[in-house]
Write a protein that binds this DNA or RNA. Structure first.
Length: 490
RNA sequence: CGGGGCGUAGCUCAGCCCGGUUAGAGCGCUUGGUUCGGGACCAAGAGGUCGGAGGUUCAAAUCCUCUCGCCCCGACCA
């Protein structure tokens, strides 16, 4: 009997860690705040990467790779950006170790102190814009549409597996454009890619909107975001796309000569999603039995568990199962046929359930005899027996149904946990229940700050499609046209 | 950075308060056998500088001091 998963109702944070550990997505590492992403977790990241990379390329982007280290001086060029990241940077000061005096360990060799210290990138705007200066001379060089898959380091106070680790994997897009309009179009194009990815692949409904001034990215003119709701009622920022204006172009002197012969600063965007999405996936769909994965991101779609007692049964069952496996694999599904005889079928049922494989097939003597297959779906845990003939079509439809069911379930959850409030009093009560609160805000940052201070709730976004509902704003009572989205967030 | 918790076998932990031969359990692992339709069972085995350093003592996993690390909760952040 393996360890149990703490029920969500008992301790949500512990449940989250239990699911990750038992589904073998990640381990803690010897380094504080850093995790080891195990093959099961990394395979999900690879699927995400595959899908997003295709979407980026379809919209004209190319991948490139910039250095991990950034000269310290680069950070002094864009004031807001510096302020945003200064407090969480890892800094390389030496290039060599030597044996320490007591002979028991090693220490930085003082002679190897770097002339200019290097910052381990917390994000790559600075080094990329320094590079773009050399690439961009003319309007003919624009736009520059580049993405990089990389790791970044942010020296966080407090970490949580996948949601916030000191080192994490992500993609960061950095684009340069001739006009503000083009850059804004790009910002929103990417935002829509993120929305589609969240909804269509992760089966995770999201709010799409703009960040308030206080919540936007350090150095951005506008930050756009997709915001999801986790099962415990807290919001999670799942992806951001920034319109950077000319801030970085000015800081790094990136100009081009336009058609009209004028020298102009270029317009910029940057955008990213990270391995945090794996945490979002866990907290959107999984249950007390373990991980639940949407089929479109599941590294393994189907597992076949053979069952037998006697040797002659074993032979027939394995033959039956292997034919099944081949047929399903030929249809394009990733299939595991678990013929390991060290574990009982019951053990395997639990194992794959914990790991979130969307569909499990069991084949035993009964099924061989009746030319049938037992089909169990992970999302509802329902089991049915279906005829062997036409199994491929059946499974195909089932996987689609699971994908749809997960989205609908998450959407229903979000709807049930989204409330409109009219007064601050009501707001303060409702926020305690978790979930999203749609309320009117008059745009005053002081009121936003006060609400955060008093309730820990922040404006998650100002929806791109405005929630028209004129009325008095919270606290100030000033008349406003629409509502914004509040929540307590991760 | 504040508050709390924990460091004993690969994992989860007991033992510590009240010091006493050879440090335990469950799971996992190895070998053999019987099993196999929702986490099988039997037998035999391997596996530990009790986080580290110092101290008290005839004697320390246990008491004292220092130290390192990790986890959780807050403030800060993707």
């Amino acid at each position: 009997m393996a360890e149990r998963i703490t029920p969500r109702s008992q301790d949500y944070a512990q449940w989250y860690v239990d699911v990750i550990r038992q589904a073998k997505l990640a381990d803690y590492s010897p380094v504080r705040g850093c995790m080891v992403i195990r093959p099961n977790g990394y395979a999900i990241w690879e699927k995400m990467r595959e899908v997003l990379d295709r979407m980026f390329k379809e919209t004209g982007h190319q991948n490139a790779y910039f250095p991990l280290f950034i000269p310290k001086s680069f950070f002094s060029k864009e004031a807001e950006h510096v302020e945003g990241f200064a407090k969480e940077c890892a800094i390389v000061t030496h290039s060599r170790l030597r044996l320490s005096a007591d002979g028991k360990g090693v220490e930085p060799d003082p002679d190897s102190r770097l002339e200019e210290e290097l910052i381990v990138r917390p994000t790559s705007e600075t080094i990329i814009w320094d590079t773009y200066r050399n690439w961009i001379q003319s309007f003919r060089d624009l736009p520059v549409l580049i993405n990089q898959w990389a790791n970044v380091v942010r020296w966080e106070m407090r970490t949580r597996l996948f949601l916030r680790t000191m080192e994490f994997l992500w993609q960061e897009g950095h684009t340069a454009h001739a006009t503000a309009e083009e850059a804004m179009e790009e910002t929103l194009r990417i935002l829509d890619i993120y929305r589609r990815f969240a909804e269509e692949y992760m089966a995770m409904p999201v709010w799409v909107g703009k960040k308030s001034e206080s919540e936007k990215f350090a150095g951005a003119v506008e930050t756009y975001t997709i915001e999801a709701l986790m099962q415990d009622g807290r919001a999670l920022q799942a992806g951001t796309s920034h319109f950077l204006g000319q801030n970085f172009a000015r800081a790094f002197e990136v100009t081009f000569q336009d058609r009209d012969g004028q020298r102009k600063y270029v317009w910029a965007t940057s955008w990213g999603v990270s391995t945090r999405l794996i945490g979002a996936l866990v907290m959107t769909h999984s249950d007390d039995n373990g991980l639940v994965l949407p089929p479109r991101l599941a590294p393994t779609h189907i597992v076949i568990v053979p069952i037998w007692r006697k040797e002659e049964e074993r032979v027939r069952v394995l033959e039956y199962g292997e034919a099944l496996r081949r047929e399903l694999a030929a249809a394009g599904w990733n299939v595991i046929f678990d013929t390991d005889d060290q574990h009982t079928p019951g053990w395997k049922f639990h194992e794959y359930e914990v790991q979130g494989v969307p569909v499990r097939l069991s084949v035993g003597p009964r099924d061989v005899q009746g030319e049938q297959v037992e089909v169990a779906r992970r999302d509802t845990l329902q089991k049915t027996v279906v005829p062997r003939a036409g199994i491929v079509d059946h499974i195909g439809q089932l996987l689609e149904d699971i994908q749809r069911t997960l989205f609908e379930r998450a959407l229903a959850f979000r709807q049930a946990h989204t409330h409109r409030v009219e007064t601050y009093e009501e707001f303060r009560q409702k926020i305690e229940e978790g979930g999203f609160i749609l309320a009117r805000w008059d745009g005053d940052p002081h009121i936003e700050a006060r609400i955060k201070e008093e309730t820990k709730a922040t404006i998650r976004c100002i929806p791109l499609e405005p929630i028209e509902d004129p009325g008095p704003a919270l606290i100030s009572g000033r008349p406003v046209r629409h509502r914004v989205v509040f929540a307590r967030a991760y």
